[in-house]
């Protein structure tokens, strides 16, 4: 049991490391606005699959790291991630058994909320954003969700993370 648990931690950690790297990976100019919110997607998956292991505390720490990585206000991403982790934890029993497409729509809504919180923060500190492309990551993340769900689920089953 303890061995399986250690192994599991390793898989979870690795998935977040990859997500962090994807988050700052240079993209061509046309794709920059559409970069999916990788950390949020991976976090939603683990909150849904293993709610007793990945929760609000981890979401907050991840958010702080993301803020340092991206150079945003310390706490901006943390706030958004904490809120979506909470909503996922509250609804994970229902959402877990939804068909993938329905899940994707819910994930899209969660990411809209995440972006909205960040937009409020940026508006309050005086750097408002008036472009429609600001919301694009919610769309691309929604499209990517089924794929991420399947990849992470297979990883979880293969390494027996529970």
């Amino acid at each position: 049991m303890s061995l399986a648990k250690r192994q599991g931690n390793w898989v979870i950690l690795l998935s977040f490391v990859v997500a962090f790297m994807l988050d700052v990976m240079p993209l061509p100019e046309w794709a920059v606005d559409a970069r999916p919110a990788w950390i949020a997607l991976v976090l939603i998956y683990w909150c849904m699959a293993l709610p007793e292991r990945v929760g609000i505390g981890i979401a907050w720490v991840l958010g702080l790291l993301l803020d340092v990585l991206e150079g945003t206000l310390l706490g901006q991403h943390a706030l958004g991630l904490v809120v979506i982790a909470y909503i996922t934890l509250q609804t994970h029993r229902r959402v877990r058994v939804f068909p993938l497409l329905q899940q994707a729509v819910l994930v899209g809504l969660l990411l809209l909320l995440y972006l909205l919180l960040a937009l409020w923060v940026m508006g309050i500190v005086g750097r408002p954003i008036g472009q429609w492309s600001y919301w694009l990551p919610a769309l691309t993340s929604m499209v990517l969700w089924p794929w991420i769900f399947i990849v992470l689920r297979d990883l979880r089953r293969k390494y027996n993370v529970s």
Partner: peptide, 13 residues
């Protein structure tokens, strides 16, 4: 916990 971490984020920001 949500309340605690949200407040912590806002204070930090």
């Amino acid at each position: 916990r949500l309340a605690v971490f949200v407040i912590a984020s806002v204070v930090l920001m």
